[in-house]
Design a protein around this nucleic acid. Structure first.
Ligand SMILES: [Mn+2]
Ligand SMILES: [Mn+2]
Ligand SMILES: [Zn+2]
Ligand SMILES: [Zn+2]
Lengths: 140, 140
DNA sequence: CAATATATTAGAATGATTCTAATGTATTGT
DNA sequence: ACAATACATTAGAATCATTCTAATATATTG
């Protein structure tokens, strides 16, 4: 998976999405897309980019996350008030939310089925269906 | 449903929940529980209480909402970053979220079935399952 | 290499929520 | 009814995630 010129694939990915491949976006894309599926907050991504020795401003992190999301490279997941996760898995899937740790865990889309989803009310269409299974510590 | 001494039922409800029936809590409970099922933000509840001519501080609104939630009289629903709804329907049910208006609409729990819900990972238990069907404007 | 469009940034601003610590009120026991 | 006590309310400050502003820098195009 890791290549000799590890950036050329990422550059293409950004270009294809209509995004200029800037130094900052490449560093963020590397953190996001080269370590398997991840669920990250803006702050976490900002911290990881800093550790990669590419200091990116927090404003740029937010800009990039929103542009990546608009381009379909990411998906935003809201599970707690005042905190957004960005999900590198854009396939149809659902989530466990570990309340104790604040961690999200994927549930593949085909493992969980919905029966009897009502029709969208007139004038609307279903943009997305989110299923969140909230887990708390088992006190036994 | 509306009684001559409309507060006595609410007072009992608060007492049973282990909450002191103060003037402020009664006013908030009246707005919350005497108009059918509702999905309200703290700000909305604050505004409605003010219109009922019971000026309640915003801090008290938050305190009350959290205590009511802890007592099982309310349920908190998170659909958008930076905004919490409090739901007076504490039965098992799910939601349409109208992205255009920010409105939540109930889906009765028995109308929508989940198939193949995975077991909770070891050491955890399912605290709740939230299904949110996000609706956007149908552009036709 | 210029001209242009787009991106980055520091820092201020915003908006929801929480905190602090002073004051007020409900409850309990007598 | 009356203290004594526990708990609730409040204004205002503080916090935290996020967004905005407007100046500067960089990528793209011709
Ligand atoms: Mn965070
Ligand atoms: Mn609001
Ligand atoms: Zn995911
Ligand atoms: Zn509801």
């Amino acid at each position: 998976m890791a290549q000799d010129r590890p950036y050329s694939a990422l550059i293409d990915r950004l270009k294809t999405a209509g995004l200029r491949p800037t130094r900052q976006r490449l560093a963020l894309a590397k953190v996001l897309f080269c370590q398997g599926n991840r669920h990250l907050t803006a702050e976490q991504l900002h911290a990881e980019a800093a550790m990669e020795r590419v200091p990116v401003s927090l404003a740029t992190v937010y800009n990039a996350l929103h542009r990546f999301t608009g381009a379909g490279l990411l998906r935003e997941v809201v599970v707690e008030p005042g905190r957004s996760y960005f999900d590198t898995n854009v396939d149809d899937h659902h989530h466990f939310f570990h309340e104790a740790s604040g961690r999200l865990e994927d549930i593949p889309g085909d493992r969980l089925g919905l029966k009897g989803v009502p029709d969208a009310p007139p004038g609307t269409r279903v943009a997305r269906v989110d299923v969140i299974i909230r887990l708390s510590q088992d006190e036994n």
